[in-house]
Design a protein around this nucleic acid. Structure first.
Lengths: 244, 244
DNA sequence: AAGTGGTCTAGACCACTCC
DNA sequence: GAGTGGTCTAGACCACTTG
């Protein structure tokens, strides 16, 4: 059971605007109604509408021009991935226009190795829960993901059978912990033989590797993840908006 | 001559807070004064202070806990790069704690090739201004950067002698254009021989490759950039904050 | 001059934690 | 219950473009 926080007014407004763009009410290159008009139409303050609009700006969906208006980005369709907020690989693959699926390769306990212990700030050999998954886009393996969680964080024991959707949800359910932030080290690597096999690439094929650490609000490392990403099949595109 | 926009109140407040954290007025793990207190102290509204604080949150410098307070992230020091922001490579290297320097390998005109023409949406063979630079951290080459600008955008001809700091500034000065947003495709590649030589790595050493396109507000591609990044010497770390 | 986005305010109410 | 951050409002003034 997942508890849903009700959407804020600003989030609802964002969704309405996103939908209108998607459905062509506002078409690429068009100027949107002014902020005041939209705010009045939706019955919200201009401040709140601006907050809603800022989300679209950050996504590169619209572009603000002071004194002139806000325009639908002509290239909004080319923009797929938002590294800022990509939390779920499933969504990443869906956004890329592919059919996502997951194969759970391993889920169980074992002692930590040195690397993991260092990153999670625990003693070597302490037990951890390990989750290895393969994400497929249209049945082609694109991401190999390994996640490691210190066992002592898990209050509710994990059911190894049930597939796990996202690490955030997993932690919330089994540890009562919320992720406050994460760091990702981005590297280019030649894949270890096992990974290359799983992703069906040559060992000489460079892969993107994301080494993530997820922290709770108290600054405790809760998850250590190593993710190999075959960007040949699934573009990894980052959008940056010039902040004014 | 560069025209400086005066800093907004929110930006000034951000800087003050950042400075206090850096100088240890607020130390890692500490709770900051409440938003109301800080706002009153600085003589600004709480709304504005929150905007200032949000910047620090996005950087992972502080962590907000509803009902409890705002805390200085214990790991704020480990956080170096913020991919979200438009970065200048110089700053990137400085943030990594190294001494930056630039070697300009080439600056001049030539006709486009097919790839560039495609990305810049111009005809093959149209003249472009090309800038090839090598960025060094403590005299070690870490980034090989090639930028291509359609020549017809450049109203003020470029002085090939003068070193160029950043593409944004270059465009502002020589084309009167502002960058509104950019897209970056992130890939892992084996470097072409020339790049490998410049960065002093083996050709079998995978490198991160950022393929950037910078757009003006009207959605016109203004710069096409290919940047090879040797992350072995300079970590590329991304921070993501869990948005509430 | 009119209209647009950019910034800021003072104040309200709510959800949450427990300093 | 007191104090904190989270959200929202109505309105003001400014900077900018010319829809």
């Amino acid at each position: 059971m997942v508890i849903e926080r009700p959407l804020t007014i600003a989030e609802q407004a964002s969704q309405i605007l996103r939908k209108r763009i998607r459905e062509g009410v506002y078409t690429p290159g068009d100027r949107l109604p002014s902020e005041s008009e939209l705010a009045e139409e939706m019955g919200i303050s201009r401040t709140t509408l601006r907050a809603a609009m800022s989300a679209l700006v950050a996504e590169g969906l619209v572009i603000r021009k002071q004194g002139a208006g806000t325009y639908v980005n002509k290239r909004s369709l080319e923009v797929t991935t938002h590294l800022q907020k990509f939390w779920s690989f499933i969504q990443l693959i869906e956004n890329g226009g592919h059919k996502p699926s997951v194969r759970q390769l391993f889920a169980g306990e074992r002692p930590t190795n040195k690397e993991e212990a260092l990153k999670l700030e625990i003693e070597v050999g302490q037990p951890v829960f390990v989750l290895v998954r393969l994400f497929l886009a249209d049945a082609i393996p694109v991401i190999h993901s390994t996640n490691v969680v210190p066992l002592r964080l898990l209050t509710h024991s994990a059911d190894a059978q049930k597939p796990i959707e996202s690490i955030q949800v997993f932690l919330r359910q089994h540890a009562g912990q919320e992720i406050a932030y994460s760091t990702s080290d981005i590297r280019a690597v030649l894949p270890p033989p096992e990974i290359a096999r799983a992703l069906r690439v040559h060992e000489q094929q460079p892969l993107l590797c994301f080494e993530d650490i997820f922290f709770t609000a108290s600054g405790v490392p809760a998850v250590y993840g190593i993710n190999y990403y075959n960007e040949k099949f699934l573009g990894m595109r980052l959008v940056r908006t010039h902040v004014t």
